[in-house]
């Protein structure tokens, strides 16, 4: 009875909540339930037919899928190992700048690429790496180095992914470290200075240890998105010449699903990715909460 009374009293609140919840039900819950297609065969007319794990068996014995899985892991790992330290370094360096205008200028500029779409960034990089007119090859040529068509080279495309990802994200990702650095007590630095520590020594022995917690949190939380490997980037930078080394899970799901129309098979591939993703996200969230008190929510 008490519940009913409260519901009646607060009916406006529930009415306000109804449109957002309806939105979530239509655009989230229904398609999530629709993932059962992974265990069915799609029929245009009539009901879909249950086929058990058939699509998964085909998937795991398909060399194309295994190759895509390998590419995803390699590209993600490369980005993580090479890209992860850059924003930390950047934050430490930005923090060393005391001149206010220069500091503001640096921050404003390095954050900018984060706000550009991957379509725009891919466009910029295709121009930048053009074999005949791109700045990179012109400079290489000037220095007597060989010129390379990076976008169509299987040996280079993954490096293009890594470097352009750093170009886009390193500045923005440095924000969280910069915030952590700025909350370090200045007394620590003053004490070190009195003891005769150089700037470099202060950076290594004070700044770094003080932001280790933040570094661990960010690393763990990034791990949760390991299987994504950056769909928008790969999708816009990939081409037929490099597809064998660049194709990742999400681009594969798009191609066999939307382009080839193999709805059920494609859904099986995305369910596989989704399940690993959920395990990673939940695992990393609770690990991070436990270790550092900070999680995804």
């Amino acid at each position: 009875m008490k519940v009913l009374k409260r519901l009646r009293q607060d009916w406006v609140l529930y009415a306000m909540l109804a449109p957002p919840l309806a939105y979530f039900v239509v655009f989230h819950v229904i398609p999530i339930l629709g993932m059962r297609l992974a265990f069915q065969d799609y029929r245009i007319i009539g009901d879909n037919v249950w086929v058990g794990t058939k699509h998964f068996e085909v998937l795991f014995s398909s060399p194309a899928f295994l190759n895509v899985l390998r590419n995803t892991v390699i590209i993600s790992a490369m980005k993580m190992i090479l890209g992860f330290p850059v924003p930390i370094l950047l934050a430490i360096l930005i923090n060393e700048v005391t001149q206010r205008h220069f500091r503001k200028y640096v921050q404003s500029v390095v954050y900018l690429p984060h706000f550009l779409s991957w379509v725009v960034i891919a466009g910029i990089w295709i121009k930048l790496l053009s074999p005949s007119e791109g700045a990179v090859n012109l400079i290489a040529d000037f220095l007597g180095l060989p010129t390379v068509d990076y976008m169509t080279s299987k040996d280079h495309i993954r490096w293009v992914f890594v470097v352009s990802e750093i170009w886009r994200s390193a500045g923005w990702d440095s924000i969280i470290y910069l915030a952590a650095i700025m909350s370090i007590s200045p007394a620590l630095y003053e004490a070190a200075k009195i003891d005769g520590a150089t700037r470099l020594q202060s950076m290594i022995h004070i700044t770094l240890p003080q932001i280790v917690g933040t570094i661990v949190t960010v690393f763990i939380l990034n791990l949760g998105f390991f299987m994504s490997a950056g769909f928008d980037q790969v999708f816009n930078m990939m081409n037929d010449a490099v597809i064998s080394v660049a194709d990742i899970l999400d681009t594969y799901v798009y191609r066999i699903g939307i382009v080839n129309g193999q709805f059920a098979y494609s859904t099986a591939a995305s369910l596989f990715k989704g399940v690993i993703g959920i395990v990673l996200i939940l695992g990393t969230h609770f690990t991070s909460k436990r270790l550092t008190g900070r999680g995804l929510w």
């Binding site: 239509v26 989230h28 398609p31 993932m35 297609l37 939307i258 709805f263 369910l271």
Partner: peptide, 13 residues
């Protein structure tokens, strides 16, 4: 937040 719907079910919807 945790469960992202897949591409194809969303497309069919």
């Amino acid at each position: 937040l945790v469960f992202e719907p897949g591409l194809i079910p969303e497309y069919l919807l």
